[in-house]
């Protein structure tokens, strides 16, 4: 099937097979931040934004995305740059494998909840599994960024 997808702002028209998954499509286009983790739609490593909403690219047919816009971490560098240093400062990246999915989902979180509570953060990121950090350091990193941003605005 011939499809057109806007990937990180760039329109791509391409022939794909009926069972091609979005994760394979974006990785074919060199978006290697998107990782294949659990294969059971549970880990959040493959998170991308589809028309601005976070989704699991491992569970989405590429055909279904025809005519839509997809963003991966490669296309969200400016937004990510604001807070990833705070996460790194808390030692929350460790092996780094889950990081891109978590960062993309954090961008979605901050767009939806500009001033989230700790519970909002925990809840929104509950679909991003991390086997290193224990999650507390991620939470501290995001909280540190939010506190910094509030201080900056004051």
């Amino acid at each position: 099937m011939l499809i057109t997808i806007t990937l990180n702002g760039k329109k791509i028209t391409e022939e794909v097979t009926a069972d091609s998954l979005l994760i394979d499509f974006v990785r074919h286009h060199k978006c290697f931040s998107v990782k294949r983790g659990c294969e059971t739609s549970n880990c959040g490593l493959c998170t991308v934004l589809l028309d601005g909403k976070p989704v699991l690219s491992c569970s989405l047919l590429t055909c279904r995305v025809n005519g839509h816009s997809v963003q991966t971490l490669e296309g969200l560098q400016e937004e990510a740059k604001e807070f990833v240093g705070f996460i790194a400062n808390q030692g929350a990246e460790q092996c780094g494998f889950c990081n891109p999915g978590m960062v993309v989902n954090t961008i979605a979180l901050l767009r939806e909840y500009p001033d989230p509570s700790d519970e909002d953060i925990r809840q929104f990121l509950s679909g991003n599994l991390c086997r290193c950090s224990g999650y507390e350091s991620q939470l501290r990193g995001i909280r540190a960024y939010l506190d910094f941003r509030k201080g900056d605005a004051a």
Binding site: S41, V55, A108, Q123, F124, L125
Partner: peptide
Amino acid sequence: VKPIVGVQFRNL
């Protein structure tokens, strides 16, 4: 629905 996996899953 809130405890079902994660936001990315529930968006699908």
